[in-house]
Amino acid sequence: DWEDIVRFLRKLFELGEEVVIGDWHNHHREEIKRLIEWLEKHF
């Protein structure tokens, strides 16, 4: 279910905002944000 995936990604992203998950999070933050925005537009 796409909504569950979007919710999971958003939760992960919000957690990442508070607890910076090292370089991985910083590197992928923009991609995650773009992916969430893309999914919201399409689903």
Rank of each mutant, 00 (worst) to 15 (best):
E37F: 04
R10I: 13
K33V: 07
R10F: 04
E18H: 14
F13Y: 09
H42Y: 15
E31L: 14
H28T: 06
K33A: 10
I32M: 04
H25S: 03
G16L: 15
G16R: 02
L12I: 10
G16Y: 15
H27W: 13
E37R: 10
L35E: 00
E3T: 11
L12V: 03
R7S: 07
H25D: 13
L12T: 00
E31S: 13
L35V: 06
W24Y: 06
L39C: 02
D1Q: 08
V6K: 09
W2K: 01
K33E: 09
I32K: 01
I32R: 01
G16H: 10
H42F: 15
H28I: 15
H27F: 14
K41G: 07
E14K: 11
H25I: 15
E40L: 15
H25P: 14
K41R: 10
G16D: 04
E40F: 13
E14P: 02
I32T: 01
E3D: 11
K41Y: 05
L12Q: 00
I36H: 02
E30Q: 08
I21M: 10
N26T: 10
L35P: 00
N26G: 10
E17W: 15
L39Q: 01
E18K: 13
V19G: 12
E17Y: 15
E37W: 09
I5G: 01
K11L: 14
V20I: 13
G16W: 15
I21A: 11
E37S: 09
D4C: 09
V6E: 06
D23F: 12
E18D: 07
F8R: 06
G16A: 15
N26A: 13
H25C: 10
F43A: 06
E37V: 08
D4I: 14
W38T: 03
E18A: 14
N26K: 14
H25E: 10
I36F: 14
L15Q: 02
H42N: 07
W2I: 03
E17T: 14
H42Q: 07
N26H: 12
E18F: 12
V6L: 14
E40R: 10
G22E: 09
D1R: 13
V20N: 07
V20R: 07
H27L: 11
R29W: 15
H28L: 15
